[in-house]
């Protein structure tokens, strides 16, 4: 056990884990995010909180994590290397743990060009791999990146992301392996729409035995409309939306209902894939549908550990 978080306990128990995602607001008014979190209480094992996602200024991940902890909910704090150098990142890890955060997800972050401060200086002092390794060394060796020692030990459950849909495809498993070696205990993947490609990736993962070293949570997103599906297909890098899925939505009378069906079917397929340890549901701007997804996917009630 690395930190004894609820997420870690569920994963270690061998049960199919469920995480949700919350996007902080462009204000300090967190009432809406609290409402979403409350609606998902008992339906997810932990809540990912994005870190100024798509490079748009929002309430910080750690700030919202504090709010969730006050509500008795478990956050997964996302930390990107876009906005902070190694001093700030390590300091924020300590701050987050001091608040009671037990899960941290390390990632590069969307480039600042895409956000509402495109003139910002991208920091990228270290990359996501170095962030993971740095945090692992803080936990396991009691040392900061620069080699100085911590005054007291800390525990944290570390995660990373993987995108089985970006290229070069063959390299994506190498990169996963590198992340596992760097310190990732759990992985959340990019949204899965192309389940065949995901299955091929999982085959490579199993060939290397990586599924035994790291808990892979498949990412899913319920699609609300045909427009959203087309947008993701054409404009979101690193996401593959197969034509069949677009056609299926096109043919459906009730698009929302069909989008939900697709999402639930994907989760059911994920449950059957050897080595998939859980699902990460990213229903941004459609949070209220998460309980229904979890129930209909046969993942309710969540384990109490």
């Amino acid at each position: 056990m690395k930190a004894g978080s609820n997420l870690e306990k569920v994963i270690n128990s061998g049960q199919f884990a469920v995480t949700g995602e919350l996007g902080p607001p462009k204000s300090a008014d967190v009432s809406m995010i609290k409402e979403h979190a409350e609606a998902m209480r008992n339906y997810v094992d932990a809540f990912n909180i994005t870190d100024n996602q798509t490079a748009i200024v929002r309430t910080s991940s750690i700030g919202v994590a504090g709010v969730l902890l006050q509500m008795g909910l478990e956050p997964v704090v996302q930390m990107t290397v876009r906005d902070r150098n190694r001093i700030a990142l390590q300091g924020d890890l300590l701050g987050a743990v001091a608040l009671g955060v037990k899960n941290v997800l390390c990632l590069s972050g969307d480039h600042q060009k895409f956000g509402n401060e495109p003139g910002a200086k991208g920091v990228y002092d270290i990359d996501s791999m170095q962030l993971l390794k740095g945090f692992k060394d803080i936990r396991d060796e009691g040392k900061f990146i620069g080699g100085d020692e911590l005054e007291a030990p800390l525990s944290v459950y570390l995660g990373a992301v993987a995108n089985p849909f970006a290229d070069p495809f063959e390299y994506r498993v190498d990169r996963l392996e590198k992340k596992v070696e760097a310190g990732a205990s759990f992985i959340q993947t990019q949204c899965i729409f192309d389940i065949d490609r995901f299955k091929r990736w999982m085959e490579l993962v199993r060939e290397r035995g990586l599924h035994k070293k790291v808990a892979i949570l498949g990412g899913v997103t319920p699609i609300k409309s045909l427009g959203a599906a087309r947008y993701m297909k054409n404009y979101v890098s690193g996401i593959t939306v197969p034509d069949e899925l677009i056609e299926r939505l096109q043919g459906a009378e009730k698009k929302k209902e069909e989008g939900l069906n697709i999402c639930i079917e994907t989760i059911q397929q994920l449950k059957e894939i050897e080595g998939v340890a859980g699902v990460h549901i990213m229903a941004i701007a459609w949070e209220e549908v998460v309980p229904e997804i979890v129930e209909r996917a046969g993942l309710y009630p969540r384990p109490k550990l």
Binding site: D127, M129, S237
Partner: peptide, 20 residues
């Protein structure tokens, strides 16, 4: 690399091109 990464590509590579 637009992000100056050292340990491999981010998830934004699309058909060999950069998302940025």
């Amino acid at each position: 690399c637009h992000k100056g990464l050292l340990n491999g590509p981010c998830g934004g590579t699309d058909k060999g091109k950069c998302e940025v």
